[in-house]
Design a protein around this nucleic acid. Structure first.
Length: 457
RNA sequence: GGCGACGUAGCCAAGUGGACUAAGGCGGAGGUCUGCAAAACCUCUAUUCGGCGGUUCGAAUCCGCCCGUCGCCUCCA
């Protein structure tokens, strides 16, 4: 299997340090607002990576953090008149329900910054001891000039960063690019005791401390959105390699392209967010996953209702391929599609090609059914490969209202069947049209009439 | 200003030197089936890959320039 490594800027053969267990760390969210579809894209990508690795026989130890103390959390909590803890608990709950709905497998552990303070303090103290960090005026900064390959992930030099000229000059810093490891407490902020006075951890150090605690000194895969490459991941590398001396901190760095809304990046600062809850009111979890996986994970993807609706329609054909059949002819052979699927996934997770293989398999199954062939082997493969992409092929869950209406729809369909048998087609069509207006689609076949609620589009 | 990515059919999107007379999906046209539909299936829907040059026996794929879009450099998946 090959994966693109941001560190080298190249597609590389994937070889984990331990042939049996892949150590994967994925940056989690800062829980202060609703989980949005951009988050969903990122976690679907890494969930799919994990599922494929497991499909190939690896054991995957997946760790993902929650940044549960930061400026935005403090600010939002104060605005809302709730405690930081309450705010964080609310949005962690929102996060998990969104991820569960999207069939994203849970990580082995979800460490939180506030519960790893001793570990974080140890790391900061160690960095100071080794000359890579310095305390000043209640804060502690990382000394970027102490790491000669600082910038190797984002492929920049310190000089080019300074040329950006968007750095706030801080009198206490030795170098403008030095970043904070420990923030001295301001009045009213949550804080913890430390050798440098009360305060809280900077953003980057938590990931260093947690990955060390839960995965050891070196990771196989570190993932996140492309917006984390700099400064977050660059700084993680600096901290971790300077603290442990083990290089590389992570063997592979993987970054997903960001979801765009219209022509802009979907982001908290722009406020152009679509929450996962809103999206799932309109589209099935399978459609959301398939939408994200129908373009390559490193490309930016524009989110649109039209696009999601098109994907939802395409799923119908795959779902149809999974309906039972009583064919008795030779089996439809899925092996070439399975091979194509694996080849695609092995090639830096080329999910668009893998999805194409799924659609081709579905067509073969449907064709085989029409020809009276047996299709259960093909269906088993389709379910298995779809499962690697995290697809469940479940029908859309019905609302309570829809469930309550079902007996009446059954009755109407039954009456219509009698009318058709009596060749009263005008009346039968009237019922079909009327149900269609109510969002109920009918399909007649030799086995009788099936009906279902239309997915919105 | 610095760094980087991208521009493929009406739309989304793979392919990055020869099997490309360019995958897959949506949409569209015609057909099979059907009482008629729907669904499914079949056929068709880019002689061409932003533009112009160049390298090569050969380029969507490599190089140069130009045009356009976007991201990062600041909180962010």
């Amino acid at each position: 299997m090959k994966l693109y490594n941001t560190l080298s800027g190249q597609v590389e053969k994937f070889v984990p340090a331990d042939a049996n267990e892949v150590k994967m760390y994925v940056c989690g969210v800062t829980p202060y607002s609703a989980t949005h579809v951009g988050h969903a894209l990122s976690y679907v990508v890494f969930d799919t990576l994990r599922r494929y690795l497991e499909y190939k026989g690896y054991r995957v130890r997946h760790i993902q953090n929650f940044t549960d103390v930061d400026d935005k959390i403090i600010q939002r909590a104060q605005e809302s008149g709730v405690s930081e803890d309450e705010l964080v608990e609310e949005f962690i709950g929102d996060y998990f329900s969104a991820m569960d709905a999207l069939n994203i497998q849970r990580a082995a552990e979800y460490p939180r910054a506030t519960r790893e303070i001793p570990r974080i303090i140890d790391a900061i103290a160690g960095l100071i001891d080794r000359g890579h960090a310095y305390p000043t005026a209640g804060d502690v900064y990382f000394r970027v000039t102490s790491k000669d390959d600082y910038g190797k992930l984002s492929h920049r030099t310190l000089d080019s960063m300074i040329a950006g000229a968007r750095i706030q000059v801080d009198e206490n810093k030795e170098h403008p690019m030095d970043f904070v490891l420990w923030k001295g407490a301001k009045p009213g902020e949550p804080s913890w005791e430390s050798p440098w006075g009360p305060g809280r951890p900077g953003w980057h150090i938590e990931c260093t401390a947690m990955s060390l605690e839960y995965l050891g000194e070196q990771l196989d895969i570190h993932g996140g959105g492309q917006d984390l490459v700099f400064p977050h991941h660059e700084n993680e590398i600096a901290q971790s390699e300077c603290y442990t001396g083990a290089k590389p901190f992570s063997r592979y760095w993987m970054h997903n392209g960001l979801l765009q809304l219209g022509s802009d990046k979907m982001s908290k600062s722009l406020g152009n967010l679509v929450s996962v809850v809103e999206a799932l009111e309109r589209y099935s979890p399978d459609a959301m996953r398939l939408y994200f996986l129908s373009s390559h994970y490193r490309s930016p993807l524009a989110y649109s209702d039209e696009g999601a609706a098109a994907i939802e329609r395409s799923l119908d054909r795959i779902r149809h391929a999974l309906t039972p059949s009583n064919g008795s002819g030779p089996q439809v052979n899925p092996s070439s599609h399975a091979a194509r699927f694996a080849t695609a996934m092995d090639d830096d997770l080329n999910t668009p090609q893998a999805v194409a293989a799924l659609f081709d398999l579905a067509r073969d199954i449907n064709r085989g059914r029409d020809a009276g062939q047996r299709i259960d082997e093909g269906q088993a493969t389709l379910r298995e490969l779809g499962g690697v992409l995290g697809l469940t092929f479940a029908e859309r869950a019905s609302s309570d209202t829809e469930l309550a209406a079902a007996p009446f729809i059954d009755l109407l369909v039954s009456v219509r069947s009698d009318l058709r048998a009596a060749r009263q087609f005008a009346l039968a069509d009237q019922i079909r049209d009327g149900l269609a207006e109510q969002g109920v689609a009918l399909e007649d076949s030799a086995q009788g009439t099936q009906w279902q609620y239309q997915s919105p589009d």
